[in-house]
Structures are given as structure tokens and as C-alpha cells.
Design a protein around this nucleic acid. Structure first.
Lengths: 118, 118
DNA sequence: CAGGATCCGTGGGGATACTG
DNA sequence: CAGTATCCCCACGGATCCTG
């Protein structure tokens, strides 16, 4: 047992909090949005994240790997090495949830924008 | 415009991150789980959150109010004053998403538990 | 190319005390 | 009862440099 997000932050039983902890991290939301659409290499991912440092990308990726949401594929037949990242089966199962959250966020922003015009 | 969670943490467009920011906070997940089931008063809420200080409860509640997820009802006909908290319409619209996240979290924990036994 | 190590600053959250 | 105010600490994340 090494997935670090199974314990809730407050000690109470709340699977919602487990899900939140897995997704929590400055860049994880966008990383997952991109990996949902296609597998990407480390540098490709970095280029889609302006402002994200290599250190942060590595940290976010390693946490997602620990939580078994994504996996790393290393192609050693190349020099320099090629690595790419893709969703695991567990990660795939999270996609509909992410899409629901993304859709709600879109509606939420839209609703607030309308309120301003009143 | 004072809802503070509409800006993403990284500057990129990602409604998923907006949703995450609204839910982010040590006690918000449980607070929402409880308010989904019934309206609650300040002290009732505090009693359902062992380890949560009054300061933290106030902070989490005020952020949820700012984001228009919950609202506070004050009954001034009583002394001392009675306050209670309940979901707004926007908060209600978030319930299915929360339930999906909670269900996924439950399945996730279950899956990891099975992996250990192999 | 794909990272790891190190140093450091900021803000989220704890402890405690005070108030309408 | 339902909160604020103040002080403080630590972990998250930024900047920079090093490596297989």
C-alpha cells in the first residue's frame, strides 16, 4: 500500500475527499485533460503547460503514478530515452467523473457571468 | 464579481480546475456531504467535524458562500441568534457531480484493497 | 531528453484568546 | 451561540543548478 491519497485529510470517512486528494495539485487538472485526449511525452506535456517547471511536472506526474492514475512507458531503444505517459485503467475510469466536473465548471462560470449582467 | 474560484491556479483555461478550487479545502468535502443531506446550524456542523476548529469552519463556510455554493440563514427572532446553512441552487446543481466523485472514490479504495490481496 | 537535489518564500491551516 | 483576531508553523510550490 503506497498510494498516498487514500487517507482523507481530516480523518473522517469520505471517499469524496480521496478523489479530491488525487486531483489536487496545481497542474494535475490540465495534465489529465491533455492525457485524456492523447498519450504525451514528457517534453510535449511540458510545452502544453506554460509556466510549469520541470520539477513541478515531475512531481505531479509521480504523484499520479503513485495513485495509479497514469503510467510511464520508457522506450530504451532510443538514445536519448523516450518516455511517454498515458492513463491506466483506473485513470480511464476517472474520465467520466472529470468530464462531469469540467462540464459543471463550464456551466458555473457561465451562470456567474450571466449574474453580472443583471 | 467576487467569487474567488473562477480563476484557475495556473492561468490556463480549464473549468475542471475551477470546480476543484471550489471543492478544495480541508473540510469542504465533509461539510458538503452533510449539507447535501440536511440543513445544519453552525454548532451542529461543528459537532459533525471532530478536529475542526471554529476558525476553520468559519473560513470554509465563508469561501463556500463567496462561491455561491451555500447560503447562510440568520434567525434574529432568537437570542442568541440562530444561523443555519443550506445549499443554494448552484450548490444543488453540484450534488450529482459530488455523488459521482464520491462513488468513484469508493470504487477506487475498493480496487486498491483488492490489489493488495493478490 | 528527462529528470533529481537543494534552497527558499508564501499561504493554508493549527492554537489560543477575545466579542456581539 | 456564532463567530473574529492574532500569532505561528509547515508543506506546497518557485528558482536554480546538477546528472544519467
Amino acid at each position: 500500500m503506497d498510494a498516498f491519497s487514500t487517507q482523507t485529510r481530516h480523518g473522517e470517512v469520505c471517499p469524496l475527499d480521496t478523489t479530491l486528494k488525487i486531483l489536487d495539485g496545481k497542474w494535475k487538472s490540465i495534465i489529465l485533460c491533455h492525457l485524456m485526449q492523447q498519450d504525451l511525452r514528457y517534453t510535449e506535456l511540458l510545452n502544453t503547460l506554460p509556466g510549469c517547471t520541470r520539477r513541478m511536472l515531475s512531481l505531479q506526474l509521480s504523484q499520479l503514478i503513485t495513485d495509479q492514475i497514469i503510467q510511464k512507458d520508457i522506450d530504451t531503444s532510443f538514445v536519448p530515452i523516450k518516455t511517454s505517459y498515458r492513463l491506466t485503467a483506473l485513470g480511464q475510469s476517472l474520465v467520466p467523473v472529470i468530464q462531469a466536473m469540467d462540464q459543471w465548471g463550464t456551466d458555473y462560470i457561465q451562470t456567474l457571468a450571466q449574474d453580472i449582467q443583471d
